[in-house]
């Protein structure tokens, strides 16, 4: 009877996650909650690009699954999710709402160009160095300029619907 083939090549999840933590510790990465399949690391904003570079070039985590945003009051939390065989590594960083700018990661991960455009449309975060920050990816062309981006907590759906022409 043939044994089922294992689809991961590392010895165990713990080894990979401790390696990543050790690698990223000069960048003040702090581990938050997680299980043996999920690692969540929080890094300061200025250390983000260096940490991503370490992950993609030296740790072999080349698949950036998505970049999501979350409005947590006075800052916007960006979550860079990497998918590595059957495990997920989250790199979280915060951007202040008063000055929502951060450096782009497209020189390291070219595929992140659309994810950053989506976060720019939905949260208003500007990625410096991104080639297409002047274009909208998801929002309609007649999106009102005086209204905040849609996924921030204080934004009113009714105002957007009236301005865009869905409701009278």
């Amino acid at each position: 009877m043939a044994r089922r083939m294992r689809h991961t090549v590392e010895t165990s999840a713990v080894d990979l996650f401790t390696l990543i933590e050790k690698k990223l510790s000069p960048a003040n990465a702090k581990r938050e909650t997680g299980s043996d399949r999920l690692l969540v690391l929080r890094v300061p904003q200025d250390q983000l690009i260096a940490s991503l570079k370490l992950l993609t070039e030296e740790m072999g985590l080349k698949h950036l699954s998505t970049i999501t945003g979350l409005d947590i009051g006075d800052s916007i939390e960006l979550n860079y999710q990497f998918w590595h065989s059957d495990r997920i590594v989250d790199i979280k960083t915060s951007v202040s709402k008063t000055d929502p700018r951060i450096e782009t990661c497209t020189p390291i991960i070219p595929g992140a160009v659309l994810y950053e455009m989506e976060v720019h449309d939905m949260f208003g975060v500007t990625f410096q160095g991104h080639p297409w920050m002047d274009r909208k990816l998801l929002l309609p062309d007649n999106y009102p300029k005086d209204l905040p981006p849609p996924l921030l907590k204080g934004t009113s759906s009714e105002k957007i619907r009236k301005a865009v022409g869905i409701e009278k």
Binding site: P150, T155, I160, V164, I166, E167
Partner: peptide, 8 residues
Amino acid sequence: QGCYNAGQ
């Protein structure tokens, strides 16, 4: 329904 971009 009611979303910022959902039609009726």
